[in-house]
């Protein structure tokens, strides 16, 4: 059982690369648009930071992350901890460059190895290159600000950032699956979240190890990130908000009443009586879970994205 795909398929780390066919057309297209906008923004921002070096540095680092995902270590039994790398990239390169680097990783994994689908690539990019990166960045910066100049901020921040980035990214993935009707929310949220809380430990461990190594070998690479704290405050605030929202909303979804069919089952209503009721719910939303819950969640996410958008606009005004 420990070797089963649910625990860490050697082909893809953290089991977050959604294949084609698992998300509805609507969800796929919406997230393609979101991803396109955010990646476009990141491209311009990282261009400003890295200048002419943008292409060679980000290209090679994307290859590095991809190769780095091979550097596993045994966690327990037959499973191994793999690196996703979103947190490390965010910490070492800053969030904008990290978004691009992870986008490249996700894209080429899909194109070359069919690790993740093409139509759902927008959703995968959103989960790993946006949510994964920005949650990590927000958490890391928060912890570092709390620690001030002390070194523990780097290590605790890095570990927690890595863990949370995996967990929250998996919840984002769960949300997309639930919205598409592929998995019921009250199963997929706890399942994805639970599994990735475990997988996230591996990510945290490797991230911690890497930061320890770099702290000894090239401390300048780590302290450089701190310089960005003030100018990006609004941005990581937004990221933190997004993380909190997703974290709060998902348990709500999973503790939501199980869906009428269980109740119906216990009351002996299964069968014809149920049929007409469920036909009232448009099939493309989701049969089995009442509309309102999903609508709330969707609204919450939209709200979080709006917050992020507003903070970005505000920050741009402040900086320019």
């Amino acid at each position: 059982m420990l070797n089963s795909p649910l625990w860490g398929n050697p082909v893809s780390p953290a089991q977050m690369h959604i294949p084609d066919g698992f998300l509805s057309l609507a969800v796929s297209l919406v997230f393609w648009v979101i991803a396109a906008v955010l990646v476009g923004m990141a491209l311009r921002r990282s261009g400003r930071e890295l200048g002419e070096r943008q292409v060679p540095i980000m290209g090679v680092l994307a290859a590095c992350i991809f190769a780095g995902q091979m550097l596993n270590f045994s966690v327990a039994g037959g499973t191994s901890g793999h690196l996703l790398g979103a947190a490390l990239a965010a910490i070492l390169l800053g969030p904008w460059a990290a978004t691009i680097v992870l986008t490249a990783v996700v894209s080429l994994q899909a194109l070359l190895f069919q690790d993740g689908g093409l139509l759902v690539m927008g959703a995968n990019i959103f989960n790993m290159a946006v949510v994964g990166v920005w949650v990590a960045y927000a958490v890391y910066q928060t912890v570092r600000r709390l620690a001030g100049q002390q070194a523990w901020g780097i290590f605790l921040g890095g570990a927690v950032a890595a863990w949370l980035s995996i967990v929250i990214a998996s919840l984002s993935c769960a949300l997309q699956l639930a919205l598409s009707g592929t998995s019921p929310a009250n199963v997929v949220f706890p399942a994805m979240g639970g599994i990735h809380m475990l997988i996230g430990l591996g990510e945290a461990l490797i991230t911690l190890g890497t930061l320890a190594f770099l702290y000894a070998a090239r401390r300048d690479l780590l302290t450089a990130g701190a310089a960005q704290t003030t100018s990006n405050r609004a941005v990581w605030l937004g990221g933190l908000a997004l993380a909190l929202l997703l974290a709060i909303l998902s348990p709500l979804a999973s503790t939501h009443p199980d869906g009428l069919e269980w109740v119906a089952e216990q009351q002996g209503f299964l069968g014809k009586a149920q049929g007409p009721f469920f036909e009232l719910i448009p099939d493309y939303i989701f049969p089995g879970i009442p509309n309102e819950a999903l609508a709330t969640i969707a609204a919450g996410i939209v709200g979080a994205l709006l917050i992020l958008g507003v903070t970005l606009v505000v920050q741009r005004r402040r900086v320019s």
Binding site: G81, G209, A212, F213, L214
Partner: peptide
Amino acid sequence: GQVAGGMVG
């Protein structure tokens, strides 16, 4: 984790 992290680093 440290060894793996060292390799990644």
